[in-house]
Amino acid sequence: MEKYGLFVGLVTLDLIYLAQSPPQNNQKIVASDYTLAAGGPATNAAVSFSHLGNQATVLGIVGSHPMTQLIQGDLANYKVGIIDLDTTTQNAPPVSSIIVTQATGERAVISINAVKTQATSESIPPEILQNVDIVLIDGHQMAIGSEIAQMAKAKNIPVVIDGGSWKHGFDKVLPFVDYAICSANFSPPSCHTEDEVFTYLSEIGIPHIAITHGEKPIRYLQNGKGGVIDVPSVPSVDTLGAGDIFHGAFCHYILRESFTTALEQAAHIASFSCQFFGTRRWIDSPQ
């Protein structure tokens, strides 16, 4: 049975190159492959969630610059809806240029995030949470995310955060979060170790916390009880977007399974995606 997810945050245009290595100063290199897709943590998560058989909508700023047609076309292709928080802006969308190293799958990224394109809570459409089963917030539209998190909490809609890194204002969102899925780079103020991060989030009252480490095991804390989940070992072609894909898959499975099973299944999907170049080709390949 399909569910409806709302994914709040960053919408970018990603230019992705596959090459032997990133260029050095004053060096020109030729890529062996290239792809273009809509990007951003919430956006890639929405694509993953949609692919697994659900309805997904991204809530972010897209605007009316000519480049946004590329974003809209890509998301339409993967059946992801867009609710634009600022349809009138003619500014170019944030663009990420990414070089994936052919031998290792590691990526180098240069981008502009949503700092220059922040919406206010007045931009939130009425009835935004009607029929929504789960909300994911990536922290790139913090005023919007904070308001949506409070609204979701009041309606008993589960809230997931993509804690890729600490962002100013996350402290306003966290009290309303049910599932904090963080990377090893997520460091709240005054937290210097992973155990301190678990303690910080637990004391806020978040019942389900996980910290991912790429191909290494996931640590989790569920209602005060900790554990570890192994990640499948795969030959990695491209790690770009794997965390975002993990979050979208987690949102799918947590509506159907236990916390630990959802983490396991999401890790399986994310690992599978790493065997393909770019953030979309895994979708077109049978598992």
Rank of each mutant, 00 (worst) to 15 (best):
M1F: 02
F7A: 02
G9Y: 07
V11R: 05
L15I: 14
L15S: 13
P23S: 14
A31P: 02
G39T: 08
G40F: 06
N44F: 10
S64N: 15
T68N: 00
L70R: 10
N77S: 07
K79R: 08
K79D: 03
N91H: 10
A92I: 04
V100M: 11
V100W: 07
T101H: 04
V109L: 15
V109T: 13
A119P: 13
T120V: 08
T120I: 10
S123W: 09
I124E: 05
H140I: 13
S146Y: 01
S146W: 03
E147I: 03
V159K: 02
S165C: 13
L174C: 06
P175C: 07
P188L: 10
P189K: 10
T193F: 13
D195Q: 15
F198Q: 04
L201E: 01
E203W: 06
I204P: 09
G205L: 09
H208R: 12
A210M: 01
A210K: 01
A210P: 11
I211H: 03
G214M: 05
L221E: 05
G226E: 12
I229Q: 12
V231C: 05
V237P: 07
I254Y: 04
L255M: 15
E257T: 14
T260F: 02
A267Y: 01
F277C: 08
G278E: 11
W282E: 00
I283Q: 05
